[in-house]
Amino acid sequence: MRSRQTRSPGEKGAGRVVAFVVLALMAVGWLMPFLWAVATAFKTETDAASESGWIGGDGLTTEAFREMLSNGNVWIWALNSLWTSLVITVLTVTISALAAYAFSRLRFPGRRWLFAVIVAAIIIPPQVLIIPLFYEMLTFDLIDTPWGLILPQIVAPAMVFILKQFFDGVPIELEDAARVDGAGRLRVFWSIVLPLSRPVMAAVAIFVFINAWNNFLWPFLVINDTNLMTLPTGLQTVIDAHGIQYAQTMAQAVLAALPLIVVFLFFQRQIVKGVATTGFGGR
């Protein structure tokens, strides 16, 4: 994370200015689509449906947001997204950390073999499993239930791999001391290993949360009841009976994006680091 402002002594003003301009242009280009969506969300439907500039002829208005919020669905979906993502995050991190610790510290028959299987499973794309998983949920009668949404999302072999690598790097001496004092494994794990692992746990948790919040395919398949949908699936599936309302659609998009953007602004460093450490887990 160290910045290297000092490392280019040969570089003088001109180069820096050019770099700055190029960078600024790219950044503006990258922000533009989202800003355009925000601008549209603050227009009237009439302005939105005609070719108008950043601000429509009718001026700024929060009409689209008010319309959207008065329609109960968006609140329900946002709440569903929030609590299911939190549960998925807690469960994933918990079971992955426990397993990772076992692989890192404990000795048991078949350890290497089992770990190899789990690492190999990282490559299995979830998309390959949609048919049998849906069938399984039918069998367990979990279609259109929160557990049907949550459970298949808590298995993350990549997170076990990442956490095991991290635990391998934690000095074992502290644990040994505690064990000599008679602390059990679970106690050692809870009071010594976990506190030392907060950064990586946070990184994994953030990563899992982002994925759960944004996941589309599985929630799209397993939930049909509009009262149980998450934001991404609800926005995709349900439409306004009166036809496409552009300003409202953009207001919904902005609302769905907002929580994660706020999280990013607050925890930028952790997220950046999190992506760097958990990047291997893929998307």
Partner: peptide, 17 residues
């Protein structure tokens, strides 16, 4: 800060559960 985050997540998670 991270402790806060993890704690918040844990509490939030428990609450959510």
């Amino acid at each position: 800060r991270r402790g806060l985050l993890t704690g918040a997540a844990a509490i939030g998670g428990a609450a959510a559960l």
